[in-house]
């Protein structure tokens, strides 16, 4: 066990972790955050996506050991069920989920796109989201939700 300090969603957490532990397991089992999901553990599906210093990463393959000075954001940072953030609200309004297992990863990935390009066109969205898998076929609604936020922020 190693003492590791993680900055997650704006709070510092001092945790006793195995030195080889990937971030996903620290988030889920030591911080009780449900958003990032185990999907493949291989960086192939994107269900575990979180932001590290504003960049999307597969938390299932990112060791906690290198994250001491980084800021980590999960889907929980975007809002709550009662007070959803803009992108979360768009996903709710567009019913951009079926089973929803991939959705937290989709939201985080989309959030990182909107932060660097607030008005992406559809082709950009499709290419950018290619790292994340959905099996239910909710892709079109996910795109709709992202476009909704991208369009709504026009003129701000």
């Amino acid at each position: 066990m190693t003492s590791t300090t993680l900055n997650v969603n704006g709070s510092l957490h001092e945790l006793e972790l195995d030195p080889d532990m990937p971030l996903l397991y620290a988030l889920r089992n030591h911080l009780n955050l449900n958003g990032a999901k185990y999907g493949c553990g291989l960086g192939q599906c994107g269900a575990c996506t979180v932001l590290i210093d504003n960049k999307p990463v597969f938390s299932c393959l990112t060791p906690c050991s290198g994250l001491e000075s980084k800021t980590i954001r999960t889907v929980e940072s975007l809002g709550t069920a009662d007070r959803p953030g803009k992108l979360q609200q768009a996903f709710i309004d567009k019913q951009a989920a079926q089973c929803g297992y991939c959705i937290a990863g989709m939201l985080v990935r989309a959030q990182s796109l909107l932060e660097r390009d607030p008005h992406p066109d559809e082709t950009t969205i499709r290419e950018y989201m290619a790292t994340n898998l959905c099996r239910c076929g909710t892709h079109l609604r996910i795109i709709e939700a992202i476009k909704h936020v991208a369009g709504a922020s026009h003129g701000q």
Binding site: L42, G43, Q44, I52, D53, K55, P56, V57, F58, L61, T62, P63, S65, G66
Partner: peptide, 14 residues
């Protein structure tokens, strides 16, 4: 074969 990019997951020291 596929492999994820680790640019944002591993720092230079790692």
């Amino acid at each position: 074969p596929t492999m994820p990019a680790f640019a944002n997951s591993l720092n230079n020291q790692q």
